[in-house]
Amino acid sequence: MSNAASAHAHAHHWETSAAPMLIVGGVLFSVVFGFVSWFSYSNILWTQICAGIGVPLLLAGIAIWTAEALTQKPVMEGLTPIALPFFIVSEVFIFMGIFASYWTMRLSAGPNWPPAGTPTDMNLVLPIIMTIILVSSSATYHIAEEKIKHSDLGGFRLWLLISIVLGAIFLGCTIYEYQHLFHMNFKPSTNAYSTAFYSITGFHASHVVVGLGSFLTVLIAAMAGRTNKYLTFCVGLYWHFVDVVWFFVVSQVYYW
């Protein structure tokens, strides 16, 4: 597992890592089994047991993974920033699938839009505020990246923290908005618009959560004095991508 060997032409032993299996186990229990227990069988006990098994596995897996990623040499330097855009292509197609579904519903509804059940006074100011917050968080992260390029670890931590806070505020806004709308009886099952609204904003929010999670791992490592330029780049790229998707969400879902 140590990397002395990779200095030679080949390793003399089989490389191993427990992290991937732990993560998959965690996902299997907390997400899959958890979901099935809750939604298919409405069994709260089972849901709790599954989450209780899954979440620790997941966290352990991520922790081990991060530790290994920061200490071990990769098979080849510098490939992560190339791989992430490939992954983002994939993500783009997931969003395309969902947006295409929304467009189909929207276009086939014609003038009957928004359908009955949609509150007439949807808050259209909040999304603008949220846009400003999210765009500034991209900007603050950019500043953080500049700082680390000039080896200013302290500045990096600070601006990274600011970005995280902004992202968290963004999520807070989403939660606030959801609560508000639920209160007005606008739920995922209300009508075609609510269907699209919650699916798209929710899916986007889940990406914000992943983005924040990766910010946090970078921050924790940075607190311990470790940084990795590829990792900081990738996390930033992902965040900018989430930002760009949000423009589509705002323009298509709120203002169309």
Partner: peptide, 12 residues
């Protein structure tokens, strides 16, 4: 390129 991600794939 990414052996650990490869292991993640197989366990998924």
């Amino acid at each position: 390129a990414f052996p650990r991600i490869n292991a993640l794939s197989v366990w998924l």
